[in-house]
């Protein structure tokens, strides 16, 4: 879910008029600076495929990265077995609501690494702040020109992110691949490495199906795969995304979670 938040942030930021000479190290920082104060809301379908089952949810997500704490509310819209399930994060606190038993579970910090709703995202992904420039050093690994979903002769960048000393992050290395065309930049792939010297990524996220979302050209499909579980994935397909949305009052409260 962090990744969802990151991608929202990335989407929110990267599509803003990009500076022509894309200084890669400042790109991440500009991304961070830009998504502070940004709000977003979206509806997406999430499909979880594991070795033993496959299931889909329709999900609505409200996010507010401004203010003192990051806030997010996720509600499951369907199917029946999960409709009304809610996840509320305010800063580091995470609550899960179950309408069947009308019970709110306060998730302790020891459980943050566990799977969220049976997907390949952890509870922690939802909670953890994702201010990349704050926690990671960025350097340009590769730059090339090719055709992309944004248009012919786009510029691709592979940015290497390594955590700053004592940064409270789970990854030792992240490789981001971004594509720039005209005034637009979108991510195409992110590889997450648990160890610095690891040859293959622990987790990979790919972005595809560029469409009109929230008034921009954005990838509408995100797919996460985990190296330790071949054949499994979690895929998110955006139906609707609105950036800078006006958040209804009381959206990030327990009342809204249980509504």
């Amino acid at each position: 879910m962090k990744t969802i938040a990151i991608s929202f942030a990335l989407l929110a930021v990267l599509v803003r008029p990009a500076v022509a000479e894309s200084d890669v190290s400042s790109l991440v920082e500009r991304a961070d600076m830009a998504y502070r104060g940004a709000t977003s809301a979206g509806v997406f379908d999430m499909t979880v495929k594991t070795s033993s089952f496959e299931r889909s949810y329709k999900v609505v997500l409200w996010g507010d990265e401004g203010g003192d704490k990051d806030r997010a509310l996720v509600k499951i819209l369907g199917p029946a077995l999960w409709r009304g399930f809610g996840t509320l994060k305010v800063g580091d606190s995470l609550k899960l609501y179950n309408p069947r038993t009308n019970h709110v579970t306060v998730v302790s910090s020891s459980m943050l690494g566990d799977s969220w709703m049976g997907s390949h995202f952890s509870n922690d992904d939802l909670v953890k702040e994702s201010k990349l420039a704050k926690h990671y050093e960025a350097e340009l690994a590769k730059k090339w020109t090719a055709d992309s979903d944004l248009g012919a002769a786009s510029t691709f960048y592979t940015v290497l992110l390594t955590p700053k000393p004592s940064a409270p992050v789970a990854w030792a290395r992240i490789e981001y691949t971004l594509v720039e065309h005209g005034d637009q930049i979108i991510p195409t792939r992110a590889d997450y490495f648990r160890k610095q010297a690891q040859p293959k990524p622990s987790r990979t996220m790919t972005f595809s199906e560029v469409t009109d979302l929230g008034g921009k050209r954005l990838p509408s499909v995100m797919k996460v795969t985990v190296a330790s579980k071949p054949g499994e994935y979690t895929r998110i397909v955006y139906k609707k995304l609105k950036l800078g949305v006006k958040i209804p009052k009381g959206k990030f409260t327990e009342q809204a979670l249980k509504k």
Partner: peptide, 19 residues
């Protein structure tokens, strides 16, 4: 019926997003 309920919940969410 379940599909209709999901669609209704989605429509409601979309309306709320649009304010």
């Amino acid at each position: 019926q379940d599909a209709a309920l999901t669609a209704a919940a989605e429509a409601e969410a979309l309306q709320e997003i649009e304010g």
